[in-house]
């Protein structure tokens, strides 16, 4: 099968020293460039919309980005563990549908009279279960992730429709009120949730032996296998972790929207873009949890800035598109034109 569809450019191996330095410089320029671009975006909006650079607004952006951020972190874990080859490597297209079903399960349980003690585990279990199905499909059946998660996405989106009959199931509990309220410094609780979740996920992925193995498995599965790592279990684990993120995002989305959502599928492409953009914020151009947070915030700030400036939000999707292309073009040129 024509399966060499890489999402991210491959890293050139070897090359002489000058070339190496050149590449390093180019990488530095790209990384610096992306941070610079981020800073420029912030400065531009701060100057043109005075309200933009206030603690309250930044907190709002963080809060509004919480759902996207949690999902994108889930996808990042899968991409790290699966490598950047889209078809053979890691991708989880079922994440957005997962959010939809988990949110629906949560809201339905609440409206059926169950408390949070049932509904929260219910939503998380839904997410994990979807992750397990993905893991089995990818690791046991050997279906390429793009297709496996595509099929699972259809099933999950269908189940959500069956459960909610395509209506919004509203839900309100004390727990949800807390989640959707404002915490210390007048910053939304959801913003704190995003930051805490990123720190936790980042700690596990970037600073533990488990995280290191995840990278090893993704970048060079054969070598990882030869070194005795349980490759299949780690890959399976990455899909289950991603499923858990979907369940968590489902709960956050019920808090944010005071009910289930019928438009969860719309989240899929923004999530994919956010996770893929994360590479430009890392030193070696690999996906990282911190990078994903930054790219989530970049998208969030752009959307917010446009709203404050009364510029049509329809431009956001176009700007996301241009961003991907600029970033990836820069990376591709950096690695030489060979990788068509």
């Amino acid at each position: 099968m024509s399966s060499d569809i890489d999402t991210l450019p491959a890293y050139g191996s070897g090359g002489d020293t000058t070339k190496g330095i050149g590449r390093w410089l180019a990488g530095f320029a790209l990384r610096g460039g992306s941070l610079l671009a981020f800073a420029a975006v912030l400065t531009f909006f701060s100057v043109s919309a005075p309200f933009f650079f206030t603690l309250g607004n930044i907190g709002n952006v963080l809060g509004q980005s919480a759902i996207l951020g949690v999902l994108a972190i889930g996808l990042t874990i899968v991409i790290i563990g699966g490598g950047s080859n889209v078809v053979k490597g890691g991708i989880d297209l079922s994440l957005a549908a997962n959010l939809g079903l988990s949110a629906a399960v949560y809201a339905t349980l609440i409206s059926a009279g169950y408390g949070d003690s049932v509904a929260i585990p219910g939503a998380l279990a839904t997410g994990v279960l979807i992750g397990i199905v993905n893991a089995i499909a990818v690791v046991v059946f050997g279906i390429v992730p793009l297709l496996a998660t595509l099929a699972v996405m259809n099933v999950v989106a269908g189940l959500e429709l069956v459960l909610t009959q395509n209506t919004v199931v509203s839900a309100s509990t004390d727990f949800l009120s807390v989640l959707s309220s404002y915490g210390p410094f007048d910053i939304p609780v959801l913003a704190y949730v995003l930051v805490i979740f990123t720190v936790l996920a980042g700690a596990v992925v970037q600073f533990t032996p488990l995280g290191l193995r995840l990278y090893a498995v993704g970048e060079f599965p054969e070598a990882a296998r030869a070194a005795g790592l349980p490759v299949r279990r780690i890959v399976a684990g990455s899909y289950i972790a991603s499923g858990l993120c979907g369940g968590l995002a489902g709960i956050l989305s019920v808090a944010y929207l005071s009910g289930s959502t019928t438009g969860a599928g719309e989240m899929l492409l923004p999530v994919v873009v956010t996770a893929l953009l994360s590479v430009v914020f890392s030193r070696r151009l690999v996906p990282t949890i911190g990078g994903t947070l930054l790219s989530t915030l970049l998208v969030g700030f752009l959307t917010n800035g446009f709203q404050l400036l009364n510029i049509s939000s329809t431009l956001v999707s176009g700007i996301q598109g241009v961003l991907i292309l600029l970033v990836v073009a820069a990376t591709s040129l950096q690695h030489g034109k060979g990788a068509v």
């Binding site: 450019p9 598109g321 292309l325 990836v328």
Partner: peptide, 19 residues
């Protein structure tokens, strides 16, 4: 430019949506 097909066409999709 040498962008991988997945990302190039994803970018086109997003820009096309705004357009």
């Amino acid at each position: 430019v040498g962008i991988t097909p997945f990302l190039a066409t994803l970018g086109t999709l997003f820009i096309g949506r705004s357009a």
